[in-house]
Amino acid sequence: MSKIKIKDFNLFYDNFQGLKNINMNIEENKITAFIGPSGCGKSSLLKSINRMNDLVDSCVTNGNIYFDDKDIMKTDVTQLRKEIGMVFQNPNPFPMSIYNNIAYGPRTHGIKSKEELDKIVESSLRKAALYDEVKDSIHKSALKLSGGQQQRLCIARALAIEPEVLLLDEPTSALDPISTLKIEELLQSLKDDYTIVIVTHNMQQALRISDNTGFFLNGELIEFNETDKLFTFPENEKTENYITGRFG
């Protein structure tokens, strides 16, 4: 089942067209990877899904993105971002305690009761496979965690508002291999409950964890297919050239 449908979507930065006529359906409870060279538009598309591009003044879009068949442009942006969480390239925990980092989202959406927040913090940390590592320092600064832990904290923070979709923008590019593996494991365990979209520069990562992969080049979606299929017998020559490293 498609969780997100992208229809004839175009995106412009001033006079530059960042995305050209994108059509794709992102399946529920699957991991979808966006790959492609820098500047190919994959991150722009990701940021369009939860309307983070609204923040860029020069960014104009047309076409539609539907989330559960609702046009995201007609959805309240706060509500949309509650349902579509996002994790960024560099871990960006707020300079506050681990507890407050995770409680930030629920508090934003009006949860005040301490018992409830306690419960959310614990369950989010557990879901992000971080609870055992931090349970004794939950009221200490989040900035004291290692990079990999910080990124898992950011995932926990995103999970705390109970989204249905998780968008990840190169979530492991700043991390060491072990932390990367932990995050990959985590994402695979999360896909039963969430729809995950991940932008990655690491093709092996896309191969390891994703069910479907979209290859972008110069703002176009060149090929969108099952990951196994795309990496063994790509339909488009451009995809073949990119993934086999015979690019440009």
Binding site: T78, K82, F88, F94
Partner: peptide, 18 residues
């Protein structure tokens, strides 16, 4: 203050003022 913190907060559905 890093922009990534602002984005992190906004991505959680927080308003600009918050």
């Amino acid at each position: 203050v890093s922009d990534s913190l602002r984005q992190g907060s906004l991505a959680l559905g927080a308003t600009k003022v918050r």
